[in-house]
């Protein structure tokens, strides 16, 4: 436990000195806020660039708060995940490749503490950035469209957050498998894409798939009832994360820590 704390502290300090604690939240806020805001100002933007041709009738669709937060989520789901993968791809692989890991792992460090500290520190950065960006989105959506009830919003925040926990855990897993950060990033993204494609192909059968989390959560916002599918997806996601962590630790223990 104490080792874990020491290791987490080192990771957090490293991320802080890297300015990751500054740029990651800022980029995420931009991603989350951009679409709802630009959508709101679309008429003005159109006017500013010359407007629609005379006679064109364009009816602005009525955008609800839920529509707006869906825009934020779709940005976070694509570019947001890309950023999370980029900041996590070298957390272990890079340390092993450079040789820093050699100095750490030669000390009586438990491999579990090492992996868990990486996971914790990364998760802290990812979740804080995610929550802050969503809060910004919630605030702007409230100002421009309508406020989503705070309870509903928190539930969305929780369930959709599980998806990011899965992304981080996947990345940690591939970090223990591969020594090359590029390969880690590729495998993580490939896995996420495959998961999404397979889920949308066999949607009915894979209703509990982690990549359905956002759909189910948004569905909850619309209907107001927590479906079994939402809970199911959440449980699947948490289970996969736990499994991946245990597996990562196992792989790491059997690996050699120098080339």
């Amino acid at each position: 436990m104490r080792q874990w704390q020491t290791l987490v502290k080192k990771e957090l300090l490293g991320n802080f000195r890297d300015r990751k604690w500054i740029w990651v939240p800022i980029v995420l806020i931009l991603l989350a806020v951009m679409d709802p805001v630009s959508n709101y100002y679309l008429p003005q933007i159109l006017d500013a660039v010359g407007g629609l041709p005379d006679g064109a009738i364009y009816e602005m669709p009525q955008v609800t708060g839920i529509d707006a937060i869906t825009m934020s989520i779709s940005q976070l789901s694509s570019l947001g995940i890309l950023i999370f993968v980029l900041i996590s791809m070298g957390t272990i692989a890079g340390e092993r490749k450079s040789g820093i890991a050699e100095l750490i792992l030669v000390k009586p460090v438990s491999y579990t503490a090492y992996i868990m500290s990486k996971w914790t520190a990364l998760l802290a950065l990812v979740l804080v950035s995610y929550i802050v960006s969503m809060l910004f989105a919630w605030y702007y959506i409230g100002m421009l469209y309508e406020f989503i009830p705070i309870g509903d919003f928190l539930l969305l925040l929780f369930f959709y957050g599980l998806w990011f926990i899965l992304v981080v855990t996947l990345s940690i897993f591939y970090n223990t498998v591969f020594r090359s950060p590029g390969l880690v990033a590729f495998s993580t993204i490939a896995t996420i894409i495959v998961l999404s494609v397979v889920t949308s192909m066999f949607g009915q059968k894979l209703n509990y798939s982690p990549s359905n989390l956002s759909n189910h959560a948004l569905h909850y916002l619309q209907t107001g009832d927590i479906s079994g599918a939402l809970i199911g997806s959440a449980v699947t996601t948490i289970s996969i994360c736990a499994l991946l962590l245990v597996w990562s630790i196992y792989i790491f223990q059997t690996k050699e820590h120098a080339s």
């Binding site: 080192k10 300090l13 490293g14 000195r17 890297d18 450079s98 040789g99 820093i100 050699e102 100095l103 120098a258």
Partner: peptide, 10 residues
Amino acid sequence: PQYPVFPSWM
């Protein structure tokens, strides 16, 4: 190690 690599930001 022969070529120790430190976390240089520390």
